[in-house]
């Protein structure tokens, strides 16, 4: 697991995001155990309460579950749930920004569509 912390967002949200990202990329496969609060806390010098707060967001979103006395595990179907969520947010997170930047650069709707075509063709 690789955490990249920046300074502008609350740490507990970043913890949740980083674990979610790892579930999305299947670094943490479904059904497997994720690092414990203490492990994450020790590795990145984050207050255990803060880490727990981040984990609880993922528990609420039904991505991970607590198995008493063992630890936290990725729930079956968690990755699909992350995908669904990110699809929902795709318009807000990417399209809006894309259009706004295109406007600043005077790129027309047609030109933008062409660029998207090109992107799909080359990658």
């Amino acid at each position: 697991m690789q955490f990249n912390f920046n300074s502008t967002e609350p740490i507990y949200l970043q913890v949740a995001e980083q674990i979610e990202e790892a579930i999305f990329t299947q670094t943490f496969a479904e059904g497997t155990q994720i690092p414990s609060t203490t492990e994450i806390s020790k590795e990145f010098h984050i207050n255990p309460a803060t880490v727990l707060k981040g984990m609880n967001i993922l528990v609420d979103n039904q991505l991970i579950e607590k198995r008493r006395g063992v630890g936290m595990f990725v729930i079956a179907g968690a990755q699909a749930r992350v995908v669904a969520k990110r699809r929902d947010q795709f318009y807000d997170d990417y399209v809006k920004k894309l259009v706004s930047e295109a406007r600043k650069l005077h790129i027309t709707k047609e030109e933008l569509a062409q660029l998207i075509e090109r992107g799909f063709a080359t990658q």
């Binding site: 912390f5 740490i11 609060t37 203490t38 806390s41 020790k42 990145f44 010098h45 984050i46 207050n47 255990p48 309460a49 803060t50």
Partner: peptide, 26 residues
């Protein structure tokens, strides 16, 4: 962190190396 997790108690840390402990603080 080890000892705090094992036995939670209050720590008051006074230091000039703020960046190193920023995320440790509640």
């Amino acid at each position: 962190i080890d000892t705090y997790t094992e036995r939670p108690r209050t720590f008051v840390i006074s230091t000039h190396l703020i960046e190193e402990i920023a995320n440790l603080l509640e």
